[in-house]
C-alpha cells in the first residue's frame, strides 16, 4: 500500500489505526494524502494512503495545505473526543492544536474507534470483541456486553491499542481483562507469571507447540540450559581426568 512506500521514503505521515499485523481499514483518516497522475489533467483526489494500492506514475503530495487542514481538523475532533489521551495531545500539538475548537464529548473516553483491537483479535482467530451500535454511540464490546466467551486473555487488543484504552490487571496469578478472569501460568521453578493458561492452550493446540515449553519462565529455562551444558562440561572434565 501507498503508506508503506511513503514511509520507506522517509516521509512522516501520521496514522493511528495502522499496524502491520492487521489489515488496513482507513478509520483514523490521518494518513490521507493527495494523489494525481499526469494523465488525469489536473484532477486530484484525496485518499487514505494505508488503503491505496501503489500504482505506476502516481504523484503523491503528503503535506499540501488541504491535507494539513484535514489532519488538523481530525486531530481537533479527536481532542474533543479523547480529551485525556496523551498520544492524541502530543500528536495534535505537533500540528499546533492545544485546545479543541469543538464541544468536548460528554462521557468521553480515549477510544478513537480505530478497530485495531477487533482486527487483531480477528487475526488471532478469535473475534472475541467487536464494534457494537452505530455512529456516535459505537463502542467496542464483547458480545451482549457480557464476559466474552471467546477471549483467551492474550492482551493483544490492549497492547495494540494506540491510545491505551483497554485496561487489564494481573494479580495473584489471575489476569482480568474484559471483566473475564484468566488463570496465569506460573513458573514451576520460580513462581513468576507467564501467560494465561487459555492462551497457552490455544498456541499448543493451534500451532502444535509442546505443552511442557510453557511450564517454566524464560529465566528458569535459560538457567536450565546453562545447567545442562555445564553438566556436559563437568562430565567431559571428569572423563579427561
Amino acid at each position: 500500500m501507498l503508506l508503506a512506500v511513503i514511509r520507506r521514503e522517509g516521509v512522516d505521515v501520521p496514522a493511528l489505526c495502522e499496524h502491520e499485523a492487521i489489515e488496513p481499514c482507513g478509520s483514523c483518516r490521518l494518513c490521507m494524502v493527495e494523489i494525481t497522475k499526469k494523465e488525469w489533467d489536473g484532477w486530484k483526489n484525496h485518499v487514505t494512503s494505508c488503503l491505496y494500492p501503489v500504482e505506476d506514475g502516481l504523484i503523491v503530495s503528503t503535506h499540501t495545505d488541504q491535507v494539513m487542514e484535514i489532519r488538523k481538523t481530525i486531530l481537533d475532533l479527536y481532542m474533543a473526543r479523547c480529551p485525556g489521551s496523551e498520544v492524541i495531545q502530543k500528536m495534535a500539538e505537533e500540528y499546533g492544536i492545544y485546545k479543541t475548537s469543538y464541544i468536548t464529548v460528554p462521557d468521553a473516553d480515549n477510544c478513537i474507534m480505530c478497530y485495531a483491537c477487533t482486527r487483531i483479535c480477528e487475526v488471532l482467530g478469535k473475534s472475541a470483541i467487536a464494534a457494537v451500535e452505530r455512529g456516535h454511540r459505537k463502542v467496542i464490546a464483547p458480545p451482549f456486553g457480557d464476559v466474552p466467551p471467546d477471549c483467551i486473555g492474550c492482551l493483544s487488543c490492549a497492547h495494540i491499542c494506540p491510545t491505551d484504552v483497554i485496561k487489564w490487571n494481573d494479580e495473584d496469578g489471575t489476569r482480568t481483562i474484559w471483566k473475564k478472569n484468566f488463570e496465569l501460568i506460573t513458573c514451576k521453578e520460580c513462581g513468576k507469571n507467564i501467560i494465561s493458561r487459555e492462551f497457552a492452550d490455544y498456541i499448543i493446540e493451534k500451532r502444535e507447540v509442546p505443552a511442557e515449553y510453557f511450564e517454566t519462565c524464560d529465566d528458569c529455562k535459560r538457567a536450565e540450559v546453562a545447567r545442562k551444558m555445564g553438566s556436559l562440561v563437568t562430565r567431559a572434565k571428569e572423563v579427561s581426568l
Binding site: R29, V105, H136
Partner: peptide, 22 residues
C-alpha cells in the same frame, strides 16, 4: 445522519456530531 453514521471513520462519526451540536 449522526444516528445513522456507521461510525467507522472519524470525519463522519465525530465531525457530523460536532456539526449537529453547533
Amino acid at each position: 445522519l449522526v444516528m445513522e453514521s456507521c461510525g467507522k471513520c472519524v470525519p463522519c462519526r465525530e465531525g457530523l456530531y460536532q456539526l449537529y451540536q453547533l
